[in-house]
Design a protein around this nucleic acid. Structure first.
Lengths: 236, 236
DNA sequence: CAGTATCCGATGCGATACTG
DNA sequence: CAGTATCGCATCGGATACTG
């Protein structure tokens, strides 16, 4: 836990970056800003971060007044919640994300993608629709990863969407067969879903009335609407 | 030089923060955004950063397409210049600085301040005024630091302001006697100059027509206009 | 679910000295 | 002015195992 001034500068950028710009911290903040409050939920948003380190980072953020740790008096769930100052970091986090979406080259991003994070990210932005039955089950088959990580289910039910990676013998409504890379591109707005279906890189099956709505219930990343720069201008 | 993906996330925030959120990097970007292009100028803006590390960081930024390294064909000065993508990082850097100015507690910031950086920061934002003679010499005496670091001169001449820490027998127009802490507060907009003069924590001497203009030629930090939160709301 | 304790290897980075 | 090479320590953080 490091809280001594490293930079020796009163500059607010220096003071802020001393604790904001440490490994994983921005991603933890992203999770909090997206609404996760439980330790395990946050952890699922940063699957490659060790839980030990997450624990330390949360403590640092508490120390700095960015979050508070709450527990119901009945000893229930523990919630990490952003303070007012923490919420005010939204523009900082999003401006960095938006810069990346606008300027970063695609290929480096889709290399070495963690499937757990991709599915977690999709699940939390999936869109409930009145047209869908309840439950509505979507099975993802990711055709380029080891078998034990290849199948995931999205369960739309009771006004929320759950993510599952264990087969409970679901009654599947829509099945999606796609590579991780292609799913990532479509999800991020870097590729067009209709074109991907037409080219065969996304294979949908199920009742047409549901597969036709895929673009809608699948949703997009929260920065997908930002236009990427032309290929020659992008950076890595 | 680390260029392998650490986070395993396609998320643009993750991709960006992998190289933006490393030690010193935001401060180097600040220097570049403020207009420094030479190695030594940049280095003076981050005096506690080792030159070795600065050299490495600049290389990383070049690799990532954020800056380019230019040298005149006559073998003159070397200039590091932001690319279009690099310039686009302005809002990211400034949003973090603005957050800090609005939310951070003052006291931790004014502890352990590097005098070299303070004077460098002041010098590059000092304001040329037609009312001033040329040269116009301001002598700063920082009354709470070791003698060899206590005196600095600002030389307003030929449409530019130079900073000097060696006595060239200047013909001083205005003398300022102040502590580093108080000078920092006034400079950052955390204290009022007029009040500081009245209370005696800033002691000005010299021709009245020049000392009366101090607030103007001294200028303020670029984020000084942002209002700090009330004391109870601030964080560390 | 929500963590903590301990170990230990990797690496980040400062200090110092040197170069064209 | 604009760097580079080398050394060596400190700390960061991952892996693993354990707790209430």
């Amino acid at each position: 836990m490091n809280s001594k001034s490293q930079y020796g500068q009163y500059c607010p950028l220096a003071m802020s970056s001393e604790f904001l710009c440490s490994r994983w911290t921005m991603l933890v903040l992203r999770e909090l800003l997206f609404g996760s409050t439980g330790f395990n939920d946050i952890s699922r948003g940063v699957p490659r971060m060790s839980r030990t380190l997450l624990s330390n980072r949360l403590k640092e953020l508490i120390e700095h007044g960015i979050i508070i740790r709450q527990q119901n008096q009945d000893g229930g769930q523990i919630h990490y919640k952003l303070t007012e100052a923490g919420l005010a970091l939204g523009p900082v986090v999003f401006s960095m994300a938006e810069w990346g979406q606008e300027w970063l080259e695609i290929e480096p991003s889709v290399k070495n993608v963690d499937v757990g994070f991709l599915m977690w990210d999709i699940h939390r932005n999936a869109v409930m629709m009145p047209e869908l039955p309840s439950p509505f089950i979507v099975e993802f088959f990711l055709n380029d990863v080891p078998e034990n990580k290849s199948t995931h289910w999205l369960v739309f039910e009771d006004e929320k969407v759950d993510l599952c990676h264990i087969d409970h013998g679901f009654d599947v409504d829509v099945h999606i067969d796609v590579s991780v890379k292609e799913l990532t591109k479509v999800w991020m707005g870097w590729a067009d879903m209709a074109a991907a279906i037409k080219s065969g890189s996304v294979k949908l099956s199920g009742a047409k009335k549901y597969t036709d709505l895929t673009v809608t219930w699948l949703g997009h990343s929260s920065v997908a609407h930002i236009q990427k720069r032309a290929e020659g201008q992008r950076v890595t």
